[in-house]
């Protein structure tokens, strides 16, 4: 097994996060019409840093395949609910991946499934934003699991309820507003706070529906999937991937 790390990718990811992102903010703050490009640049750079960091670890075959399977499940989960309109369970699976395998896997699962689903439903100006927003959803779930708020092996109803509540509010407060920001930047010049508020408030109903779908999936599907992931790890002797 090759355990030597690819160090240039690791250092490049650090340089991007610590030097290039602040530099972008600095450069764009001197320009006139900066919002859309600045946002896009920061998002692309951050996603690239995550990708490079993952590459620098030289991931093993099992890690890759589990990640691919979960991404594909997230995208294909839409098919299971073809009968229910506006029911998008994709982010629930992304978040569960983050909980089971950590923040980095959560981000990658979100970003890759967002990108892959756009190959099917059509790429657009929203693609980078969607990748980033979904990635952040998975990352957050992973962080909350790391801090012990979300349980990797939910036991009673309490843990499941926490999962459900987390799913709803993560969409309503973080992922949904991030997606709204992409629409917001395309039409923005200089805004006062009330206009910014108006744009985000306009997105609340859509985010509520999305959040409800994710919360419901977490409620019914969260525990079974987490148990299944644990079972796989025990059955085939996989350590923490």
């Amino acid at each position: 097994m090759n355990t030597k790390k690819s160090s240039w990718r690791f250092w490049l990811s650090l340089v991007i996060l610590l030097v290039l992102v602040p530099l972008t903010v600095l450069v764009f703050s001197r320009f006139d019409r900066k919002y859309y490009l600045a946002g896009l640049a920061i998002i692309v750079l951050t996603t690239a840093a995550f990708f490079l960091h993952f590459e620098s670890r030289k991931p093993q075959a099992r890690e890759l395949v589990i990640l691919a399977v979960l991404c594909a499940l997230a995208v294909a989960s839409r098919a299971a609910f073809a009968a229910v309109p506006h029911f998008k369970p994709m982010l629930a699976i992304v978040m569960l991946t983050g909980i089971a395998f950590g923040p980095e896997a959560g981000f990658l699962c979100g970003a890759i499934s967002g990108f892959a689903s756009n190959f099917i439903f059509g790429q657009g100006p929203w693609t980078p934003w969607q990748m980033f927003a979904y990635g952040i959803g998975g990352l957050l779930a992973g962080l909350f699991a790391m801090w012990g708020i979300l349980k990797k092996a939910p036991k009673g109803w309490k843990d499941v309820i926490i999962l459900t509540v987390f799913g709803f509010f993560a969409i309503l407060l973080i992922v949904g507003p991030l997606l709204d920001t992409s629409t917001f930047f395309t039409v923005a010049t200089s805004y006062d706070t009330s206009s910014v508020l108006a744009v985000y408030l306009a997105g609340v109903p859509v985010n509520c529906v999305h959040g409800a779908a994710v919360a419901l999936t977490m409620l019914l599907f969260g525990r079974p999937l987490l148990e299944r992931l644990q079972r796989i790890q025990i059955k085939y002797g996989m350590m923490e991937p």
Partner: peptide
């Protein structure tokens, strides 16, 4: 009922997919 049905399909699908993933990974290695 529709949502419950969808969940059941998703559960069956995820179990099948995860078992397959290990075989694929071992074969790759």
């Amino acid at each position: 009922e529709k949502i419950q049905g969808g969940m059941d399909v998703l559960m069956a699908l995820s179990g099948w997919a995860l078992e397959g993933s290990v075989v694929t990974a071992d074969s790759m290695r």
